[in-house]
């Protein structure tokens, strides 16, 4: 029950990636995404695959966990692959039957796009969500966005809202379960009947849930006020983020990867991506 709620994707650990500064990590992810989209031919893609394998290894996250994270994408991957295989025209015909024409270029293109999507999702989640706690993530985001406070954007409030929202997800899940059990004990049935009936069956859960969420919000606001919370102004932090040699090393590694991809794009011949 309670223990089944694994919120987010954070995977407890103490690897090189876990110990990177979250502010840098957010920037690294953006950089990594740019690199992924820079890759144009099979050689630069091979380098990308190597980089993703390398990331998996140093993160010390089991491959099974990462693959499970990709499961929701199976349909999108499959769909893009099919479209690319059938729609793209090229010079080398592989299959030519009735209205189906498959070209070698289309096949390779489909393959590269699939690789791109997989690396995009797996790589960014290893680099960020698997190895950063949600709290560190919002903290890093707040610090990165803090220059915007100069133009009176409520950066601190925004990140406080995010932190609170994340904190209360497990609480609300637990509460939902409790309410569901209470209504089931009164004979509520959520799993049979037509769609309309099932939607109506949710009312006895949603109303108490909303009410308790509002009550909790009010209590939390009172508790924060009692502790003299007045917003971000003049507030110091308990956990001060420090950059270390690790962040520099990671930055250098990413620069090297970027250079490698660009050079392979220019100098290695091979099947180029059409998109």
């Amino acid at each position: 029950m309670k223990a089944d709620i694994a919120f987010g994707q954070y995977y407890e650990g103490n690897s090189f990636l876990h110990r990177l500064d979250p502010r840098w990590k957010i920037l690294f992810v953006i950089f990594y995404i740019v690199i992924i989209f820079l890759a144009k031919n099979i050689f630069s893609f091979a380098l990308l695959i190597l980089s993703a394998i390398f990331l998996t290894l140093i993160s010390r996250i089991p491959l099974r966990t990462i693959l499970r994270g990709l499961r929701p994408l199976v349909f999108i991957i499959f769909f893009t692959a099919i479209i690319n295989i059938f729609w793209l025209k090229g010079d080398t015909v592989l299959v030519d039957w009735w209205i189906i024409h498959i070209y070698l270029e289309g096949l390779i293109n489909a393959l590269l796009i699939v690789v791109r999507v997989v690396i995009l999702v797996a790589g960014t989640s290893i680099l960020l969500t698997y190895t950063t706690t949600p709290i560190a993530l919002t903290d890093g985001l707040e610090r990165l966005l803090s220059p915007l406070a100069k133009i009176h954007l409520p950066v601190h409030e925004f990140s406080m809202m995010m932190t609170i929202a994340l904190r209360f997800i497990p609480t609300l899940v637990e509460e939902t379960e409790k309410i569901m059990n209470a209504q089931k004990a009164r004979g509520a049935d959520f799993s049979t009947g037509s769609l309309v009936r099932r939607a109506k069956a949710l009312i006895p859960i949603l109303i108490p849930l909303f009410i308790s969420a509002f009550r909790r919000a009010e209590e939390l606001a009172t508790a924060m006020e009692c502790r003299c919370y007045t917003g971000g102004k003049g507030r110091t932090r308990m956990n001060i983020l420090h950059s270390s040699w690790r962040d520099v090393a990671a930055l250098l590694a990413l620069c090297a990867l970027c250079a490698g991809v660009v050079l392979l794009n220019i100098f290695a011949p091979g099947y180029a991506l059409a998109l």
């Binding site: 509460e175 409790k178 309410i179 059990n181 209470a182 209504q183 089931k184 004990a185 009164r186 004979g187 049935d189 009312i203 006895p204 859960i205 109303i207 108490p208 009410i211 308790s212």
Partner: peptide, 20 residues
């Protein structure tokens, strides 16, 4: 479900189940 009608359960802090 029939069992649940025969065995009525009042959960802890049952007031959160009120909704109507």
């Amino acid at each position: 479900q029939q069992i649940r009608f025969q065995v009525g359960l009042v959960m802890q802090y049952p007031e959160y189940q009120l909704f109507d």
